[in-house]
Design a protein around this nucleic acid. Structure first.
Length: 163
DNA sequence: GCCAACGTTGGC
DNA sequence: GCCAACGTTGGC
């Protein structure tokens, strides 16, 4: 069964346009146990994820990617020169793991966070919970499809291709 | 840049 | 195991 996720990235470091250009990317650098556990224990190949731009102007969902490989050790934890270096990590026990995702689509219409907030359709979405900082978030299929619909249809302040 | 909310660390 | 201090996230 396909599951649905939301994955946050700061577009200044890696955006949906970067993923579109690369085709696929390793989602490494996650250093939160709950997010790691989702990736390690619950993500499966074929799962779909909303690609979320955080710390953006505005923040919101930019498109969709698909999980194409799971159970990958995050080797950036072993690299002293990496910002994601973790001195406790070893080759035998890298501690952190990651997944590979592939580009599916960039939405014709960017879906800003404030727009998601406005609709009662998205009540219960973990992203909207106060203080929710988790970078990997499970999303139910209804919410996933609702956001995808918004991304495919006109929204008040964003025109096609102009964001 | 501000600040609220959270997660992690480390002394005890 | 408690909890204060600290660092980070992320919206604004």
């Amino acid at each position: 069964m396909t599951r649905y996720w939301l994955m946050k990235s700061e577009p200044t470091s890696y955006s949906i346009d970067d993923l579109k250009q690369d085709g696929f990317t390793l989602w490494d650098g996650v250093r939160n146990y709950q997010a790691r556990n989702y990736m390690r224990d619950e993500m499966a190949v074929g799962d779909l994820a909303l690609f979320y731009h955080s710390n953006a102007f505005p923040s919101g969902v930019a498109g969709i990617c698909r999980i194409c490989k799971v159970g990958i050790p995050d080797l950036t934890a072993l690299d002293p020169n990496s910002p994601y270096y973790d001195k406790r990590a070893t080759k035998a026990k890298p501690i952190w793991c990651t997944v590979e995702v592939e580009y599916v689509e960039k939405f014709p219409y960017f879906v800003p966070l404030y727009e998601i907030r406005e609709s009662s359709e998205f009540d219960g979405l973990v992203l909207l919970e106060k203080g929710s900082r988790l970078s990997i978030i499970p999303v139910d299929s209804t919410h996933f499809e609702g956001i995808r619909d918004l991304g495919h249809h006109s929204s008040p302040s964003y025109s096609e291709g102009n964001w």
